[in-house]
Design a binder for these strands. Structure first.
Lengths: 149, 149
DNA sequence: GTCGATGCAAAGAATTTGCAGGACC
DNA sequence: GGTCCTGCAAATTCTTTGCATCGAC
């Protein structure tokens, strides 16, 4: 099911880009495919490195430019998890369960989790504030089980 | 009451630094005083600029070094709100109500808010996860009332 | 006096941008 | 064929570091 969803994401992204008048290209497709395969966050450098190991090499500038477009179209979400660089993950279509992140201070790994009560509270909160809330991130920081003790 | 609390923070910070064997200095005191006066986040550059306008000029390197120490001692919290640079704010003593941030996509301002239900849910969540949660950030993004068309 | 703190300037790291050539439609 | 895309390298921006000097204890 993961794989099905992944394929969907890349396909949906390609379609959206085409609709918006963007042209197809091998490097861009490779980036989309890789992002679609992610269950959690990756940095621009991660993407470039991963692709470099494969057959399709992609310049880091292209990775950034592609991510910029995807972010504008809300196909990926940019996250600042406190590391050196920004990280990105495929955005979930509206209403679908999306997750948040626990970041380990020791190993730096980001571990995704979801929680319905949390979403509900944030929903209510959004209504209480006068502002229009378009997106939200919850970041927990601490020590993960592997690094514990 | 704000002012009392601010004075407390700077005083507490100075005391903690002294305890840890750090030496006092005019530049550092100026940074501490300024941070203590903040109700919300500022960037390192904000701090340097603000002090430059006053009588005590402080090099940006000193600002960063001071912030680094303060962060280690958990006297300030570093926040990645998605802007270009990291922002900092005085940390609240344990257990005191701390706030989170709404960031406006148009004007970039960070608006603080607090919510007890949110804290409670995150508390429970921390227990559900096997990891030790040491801190958490909730960031809402959208459009603030002033920028709302 | 000793050792931490400062400021400047240089080094680093992440991200963006300019440009010439190449590919898509 | 025009326009968008790509890769490289240069430019930017934020942050850290090296170093000589100054000041606190």
């Amino acid at each position: 099911m993961d794989r099905t969803q992944s394929a969907d994401w890349a396909g949906r992204a390609e379609a959206t880009l085409r609709e918006r008048g963007h042209k197809a290209s091998a490097p861009r497709s490779a980036v989309l495919a890789l992002i679609g395969r992610q269950e959690c966050v990756v940095s621009a450098q991660d993407i470039a490195d991963e692709l470099k190991r494969g057959r399709q090499k992609v310049g880091i500038a292209t990775v950034y430019r592609t991510l910029e477009i995807l972010e504008e179209l809300r196909l990926v979400q940019r996250l600042d998890l406190g590391g050196e660089s920004a990280r990105f993950e495929p955005a979930t279509p509206d209403g679908h369960h999306h997750h948040h992140h626990f970041v380990c201070r020791i190993c730096g790994r980001a571990i995704p989790f979801e929680d319905d009560s949390l979403e509900r509270v944030i929903d209510v909160l959004g209504k209480r504030l006068k502002a229009t809330v378009e997106e939200h991130d919850v970041i927990l920081k601490g020590v993960c089980p592997d690094c514990e003790g």
